[in-house]
Design a protein around this nucleic acid. Structure first.
Lengths: 340, 340
DNA sequence: AGATTAGATGCACACGTGTGCATTCAGAGA
DNA sequence: TCTCTGAATGCACACGTGTGCATCTAATCT
């Protein structure tokens, strides 16, 4: 049976409301009694009941985080950034990973609703519009991270994928590459399209053509899908000298497939990733990639959400707030100058 | 302003207690009114308040999970197993990652206490005894996973590291290796010691000596520490033909260091990992490792915890329950027969 | 000395839900 | 017709906390 403020009140001979005020540092209470009460609370090992507090204050001091898969190192670094900011503001996190499963997503949203989470951060590109609407209808402030359907949510944090992709492409062009291909992820929506258009824009700026079949998409973002990618390019007229991959995991799979096929990276083929997950430093060869500021993205999302919570929906409706963060190119050893 | 059962009561013209019973499927309520109430609840978009419910029932329907670092793929797979069982039982998870930081750990424990989590699963080998005691003093059921100080907690789930390590060692001996070294992680306590003693036991059973300097420890379990490992063995009289690593990440770092030093794996040196994190299938060469049933371990921990919750501390005190799970050897390409 | 004021504390209600007990009502049995 | 029984529903309190208002005391002012 946990200790309550009434227990403390009984022991110190005051009313429970006095205890409540003393523990909140209210200046209505004299310093001596306040100190006496705090001392008793410490000695008795008092821990306030979050349930009772949030029932009364209508603030749960909890943020909901919905992520497609928590074991994906990309997302866990974003969560890391969120958690730091949340802790600084005295908030805890409710994390749910949907695993791209609508049923699980439903249960997670249900949990957020029941726990009256003060706000929700969505880091799942596949998050369904229906569930988003459900949260919004219940008045939940929402911030989405890298989401495709930005028109459905008013507050988003984005990474500048176009800029990142241009930097990667420019790096390859600078190394003398002319036949550069793009291997995308067809299920990731806006993100893959931005990276594709950044690639296209930079190629066009350099006056380089993109041959037939040089733009391919695999249905997913894991290493297994990356392995499949190689087969696509084996079918084109002239094999590329460089392949830009949608993300690190695809690049890693492609790397393995190339090794098995006797294609040497970077001598025969340059390969680039995207995201800079921690593992990409330990591939063979270490992967040239684009370092997305994952932790900052998470932190920024949390900060924006806290602003919304403080504003209590008093922001003018109809406005759309979008914050765009930039990353930086990380050159390792999977790219090299093209042979003359 | 969320919908409450009183709102539903007003609309259907009954008392709120009738609504409460109807939504719980109590047979005190006539089927017609119950259906009428449920219909109204659906239409109004009612979501019960977790705070109010847990305040009244003294059950939060939330499990706490304390993990040392959530971005470690090893832990996230365990969490995955926990989450599945929790969801089946109508529970949600409160996840906190301590990052081996006592201050953060304190905040996490605080959160669990305030939210009156129905139980706690600890997956952090560095979890402090002091915080464990604090949770126990407040009557929290605790299940620890792979924890070193098992004597402080009554309920634990373990992976059979001794057996696993013996299987790995036997595999190498079967390939003809005689000079086998062990690269451990000095900060991981019991786990590394068990893996070490499994190695020693199997070597002794095969009548093989372990030369001076063949047992080394690095202060951590990441790839960077694995890289350091190579230097240790460069100093010994005769270089080993195989190195058993504490875990996959260390093996991956060692693999990279070997490549840079011109040591060919597995021709010159066999290397084994431990845990089978998803990434180990994509190293070069793919890593031979021991597949720890991470998801099952998490699931088993959750099941045990639910038993404790149901028993409501009615278990006889002083008893110690330990469940041990076994994994299986996974042979890939980082090990090979020793050259004659 | 009496009136006023500021400071400190208690009282009582509210938050949303669950549940023991009382109450009502209809139908069955005597 | 009257009593009894069981089904269905309402009443009221409790869970732990926060807060507006009332109350009380002692100090200050006129």
């Amino acid at each position: 049976m946990p200790i309550t403020i009434k227990d403390i009140a009984k022991r110190t001979g005051v009313n429970h409301s006095t205890v409540s005020r003393a523990l909140h540092g209210s200046n209505l209470i004299s310093v001596e009694t306040a100190e006496r009460i705090r001392k008793a609370a410490r000695e008795m090992g008092y821990q306030p009941s979050a349930a009772a507090r949030s029932l009364k204050t209508r603030r749960s001091k909890v943020l909901g985080v919905i992520v497609s898969s928590i074991e994906d190192p990309f997302f866990s670094e974003i969560v890391f950034g969120i958690e730091a900011v949340a802790q600084d503001n005295g908030y805890s996190l409710f994390i749910g990973s949907s695993q791209h499963d609508n049923q699980r997503e439903r249960k997670i949203v249900q949990t957020m609703l029941e726990h009256r989470t003060d706000g929700v951060i969505v880091c799942s590109s596949s998050f369904s519009v229906e569930h988003g609407r459900q949260l919004l209808d219940h008045g939940f402030p929402i911030v989405v991270v890298n989401h495709q359907a930005t028109e459905n949510f008013h507050y988003s944090i984005f990474h500048d994928d176009i800029d990142g992709s241009r930097q990667v492409t420019r790096h390859l062009i600078g190394l003398g590459h002319q036949r550069i291909a793009y291997l995308g992820n067809s299920v990731s929506g806006r993100t893959t399209l931005d990276r594709l258009s950044g690639f296209q824009a930079e190629m066009e700026a350099a006056g380089l053509p993109i041959p037939e079949g040089y733009i391919q998409h695999v249905p997913g973002g894991t290493a297994l899908e990356g392995r499949e990618g190689l087969q696509h390019f084996n079918g084109v007229a002239e094999f590329p000298t460089a392949i830009i991959c949608y993300n690190d995991m695809i690049a890693i799979g492609l790397l393995q497939a190339c090794r098995e096929a006797g294609i040497h990276v970077p001598q025969d083929l340059s390969i680039t990733g995207f995201d800079n997950i921690s593992f990409s430093a330990f591939t063979h060869p270490p992967l040239t990639t684009f370092d997305q500021p994952k932790s900052s993205i998470g932190a920024e999302a949390a900060r924006l959400l806290f602003e919304l919570i403080d504003a209590e929906q008093k922001v003018t409706p109809g406005t759309q707030y979008v914050k765009i963060l930039k990353g930086s190119l990380l050159v390792r050893s999977s790219t090299a100058a093209v042979l003359p």
